[in-house]
Amino acid sequence: MKEQGKIFLRKSAPEKSARMVETIYGCKWSLTVYQLLANGINRPGAMVRSVEGLTTKVLNECLSKNAKFGILERITYNEVPPRVEYKVTEFGTKFIRILDELEKLQSEIESEML
């Protein structure tokens, strides 16, 4: 008997985007930062004051990680004292929609377990 030719190649996970989702979910403050930005709080000092338990050091690490991925954009104003704001990029908007869908999926899974 002849073996039939294989039609499909092994499918692997999208490496970069999967790693990005894992990294962002691994940062317990990223989702909170997105929520703050959605509510118009875009300055780091205001973010720290708005969330109990959030420190400046941890926030700066989270913001720089998100900026490195292209999810957030850092805007620096040439003023004294210096002013920095963050905004969600166009890519970040798409990425956050994916996170929202994952959250909906989690809710469905939890409701099915009841």
Rank of each mutant, 00 (worst) to 15 (best):
residue 9 L to S: 15
residue 14 P to C: 11
residue 19 R to V: 12
residue 21 V to Y: 04
residue 22 E to M: 05
residue 23 T to V: 05
residue 23 T to Y: 04
residue 25 Y to V: 02
residue 28 K to S: 12
residue 30 S to I: 07
residue 31 L to I: 08
residue 31 L to F: 08
residue 31 L to P: 04
residue 32 T to C: 07
residue 33 V to G: 05
residue 34 Y to L: 08
residue 34 Y to S: 11
residue 35 Q to I: 09
residue 36 L to R: 00
residue 36 L to H: 02
residue 36 L to C: 09
residue 36 L to P: 07
residue 37 L to E: 00
residue 37 L to T: 01
residue 37 L to S: 01
residue 41 I to G: 00
residue 41 I to C: 01
residue 44 P to F: 01
residue 45 G to D: 06
residue 46 A to H: 01
residue 47 M to G: 00
residue 52 E to L: 04
residue 52 E to R: 08
residue 56 T to S: 14
residue 58 V to L: 14
residue 59 L to I: 03
residue 59 L to H: 02
residue 60 N to K: 10
residue 62 C to H: 04
residue 62 C to S: 11
residue 62 C to K: 02
residue 63 L to T: 02
residue 64 S to I: 13
residue 66 N to F: 05
residue 67 A to T: 11
residue 68 K to L: 06
residue 71 I to E: 02
residue 72 L to H: 03
residue 78 N to A: 08
residue 79 E to Q: 10
residue 79 E to R: 01
residue 80 V to F: 14
residue 81 P to R: 04
residue 81 P to V: 09
residue 81 P to D: 12
residue 82 P to I: 05
residue 84 V to T: 12
residue 88 V to D: 05
residue 89 T to Q: 03
residue 92 G to E: 05
residue 93 T to R: 09
residue 96 I to K: 04
residue 99 L to C: 03
residue 103 E to A: 05
residue 104 K to I: 06
residue 105 L to M: 09
residue 107 S to Q: 12
residue 108 E to D: 11
residue 109 I to C: 13
residue 113 M to N: 14
residue 113 M to S: 13
residue 114 L to S: 15
